[in-house]
Every structure is written in structure tokens, then in C-alpha cells.
């Protein structure tokens, strides 16, 4: 199996394909997180989105998140695909699939992955509204990095 578990892609993401990457005989629980383009954010209407990535580093950071999860949750398998380029409302921006032997771990590890993506993966979103557009920074509202870089996850 030569498929990549962590990838930045330009075409639509198949939920089924990403989820299937982590299905294994020994893991009975799989959680999948699907992030889509929301029409309204705090009452403001989004027309479309554009994602840009520092692709090579983004893949490296996704791989790092996978490693962090393996350190924290025993026997977890993770696959993450993030799409870049222009996306319409309701289109899928990111899919995170995690399989674990135990159910609770699959939820926790998956939520950890999306939180870490929003901290360390060099991907930026430009929102296009009816009356303008803007690059969005700092979704977590934590712009201050006391160490000068994101906090270590492990």
C-alpha cells in the first residue's frame, strides 16, 4: 500500500477513501472529522473560500501530528487530507480519519488532530464575502507564541 496518509490536495476529497485508509482488522472504532465551508460565520455570509498552503511543510506538520497522536494514543492510525485552492460553500476542506481499538480514543485523538492543525499546519484561508475579501489568521485567537513558535504538542 503506497498511498499517503498525510496529504495536501487540489481536488475534492472523498470521505470514504480517507476513512478506508485507517480501517484495520484490529481497530473497531473509526472517527472521521469533515470540515466544510460554512456559509455564515458570525452572521457574515461567505461566498467562497481560498486555501493556500506551504505545501511541503504542511505535509511535514500533518505527519508530525500523526506521530504525536501515536505517542498519546496507543495503536491509533491517522490519515489527514487537506484541500487547497478555491472552494465553494459546503465543499470539504479537510478530512481527518482516526482508527483505534477503543472508541473513546478515536474521538479524543481526532479532536486533538483538528486542534493541532489549527495551531501548526501552514495553511491559510482567504474568505470572499459579498463586499470584499480577507486572509483569515489566528482561528484559535492565540497569536502570541511565548517561545516564538507554536507550543509543543507532546
Amino acid at each position: 500500500m503506497n498511498e499517503s496518509l498525510f496529504e495536501i490536495v487540489k481536488d475534492p476529497i472523498s470521505i470514504e477513501k480517507i476513512t478506508n485508509k485507517v480501517i484495520r482488522n484490529e481497530a473497531g472504532a473509526i472517527t472521521t472529522f469533515v470540515g466544510t465551508v460554512r456559509e455564515f460565520t458570525y452572521g457574515k455570509r461567505t461566498i467562497s473560500l481560498e486555501y493556500q498552503a506551504y505545501e511541503k511543510m504542511a505535509v511535514k506538520m500533518l505527519e508530525q501530528i500523526g506521530k504525536e497522536i501515536n505517542d498519546k494514543w496507543n495503536g491509533a492510525k491517522v490519515a489527514i487530507s487537506h484541500r487547497i485552492g478555491k472552494l465553494e460553500i459546503s465543499e470539504i476542506a479537510v478530512v481527518i480519519a482516526v482508527s483505534t481499538p477503543h472508541r473513546k480514543d478515536a474521538y479524543e485523538a481526532n479532536e486533538y488532530a483538528i486542534e493541532r492543525i489549527k495551531q501548526i499546519v501552514p495553511i491559510w484561508k482567504k474568505e470572499v464575502w459579498e463586499d470584499g475579501e480577507s486572509w483569515i489568521g489566528d482561528q484559535l485567537e492565540k497569536t502570541y507564541y511565548p517561545e516564538g513558535k507554536p507550543i509543543k504538542g507532546v
Binding site: A53, Y54, M57, K118, V121, I123, I136, G137, Q139
Partner: peptide, 20 residues
């Protein structure tokens, strides 16, 4: 901040990220 950049390095300026 205190890390050193050498000729040949590839540097990137990373504004607050907003993927996901």
C-alpha cells in the same frame, strides 16, 4: 528568534495559520 539562518537556507514567514 535566536536561531541562526545560513546562506542556502529556505526561510518562510508564517502568519497565524487558518487551515482546518
Amino acid at each position: 528568534d535566536q536561531d541562526t539562518i545560513q546562506p542556502g537556507d529556505v526561510v518562510a514567514l508564517i502568519p497565524p495559520v487558518s487551515g482546518g
